[in-house]
C-alpha cells in the first residue's frame, strides 16, 4: 500500500491533535485525497480559559478574542492539511464556521 487515504487520515488527525483541538468532537477522514473534517472545534487550554476569565466583564470583547484565537487555529489547520503530500483539497463542516473561497474563515453564528 503506497501513501493512502488510511495513512493520510492519521496525518490529518495528528495535525488536529497538535493544534490542541479535541478529536473526540470531530469526524475526520480522507477519501481519494480530499480531507473531510466535520464537527465542532474546541480548544481546552490555558490560553482559551484565560480569555474566558479575563474578558468575562464584556461578552463582546471575549467573543472577539476567542474568534481571533479560533480563526488562527483554523487557518493553521487548513494550511497544514493542504501542505500534506497526497492531499489535494479539504472540505470542512465546522459548527459556527465556514471557509469561503477568497475570504478565509468566517464565523457564522455565536457572534
Amino acid at each position: 500500500m503506497s501513501i493512502s487515504d488510511f495513512q493520510l487520515t492519521s496525518m490529518v488527525r495528528r495535525v488536529i491533535v497538535s493544534l490542541g483541538l479535541q478529536t473526540s468532537l470531530l469526524d475526520i477522514t480522507v477519501i481519494n485525497g480530499v480531507a473531510y473534517v466535520k464537527g465542532k472545534i474546541e480548544r481546552q487550554d490555558v490560553t482559551i480559559m484565560k480569555i474566558r476569565r479575563d474578558y468575562a466583564f464584556s461578552q463582546e470583547m471575549m467573543q472577539e478574542k476567542l474568534r481571533h484565537e479560533y480563526r488562527y487555529t483554523l487557518e493553521a489547520l487548513d494550511r497544514q492539511i493542504r501542505a500534506m503530500p497526497g492531499i489535494h483539497g479539504a472540505v470542512y463542516k465546522i459548527k459556527d464556521w465556514e471557509r469561503r473561497i477568497g475570504k478565509g474563515w468566517i464565523r457564522t453564528h455565536g457572534g
Binding site: 500500500m1 493512502s4 487515504d5 488510511f6 495513512q7 487520515t9 477522514t29 477519501i31
Partner: peptide
C-alpha cells in the same frame, strides 16, 4: 469499524 473500512478501501 470505520478505520477498518478506510484500511480496506485503501487496500
Amino acid at each position: 469499524a470505520y478505520r477498518l473500512a478506510e484500511y480496506y478501501y485503501s487496500d
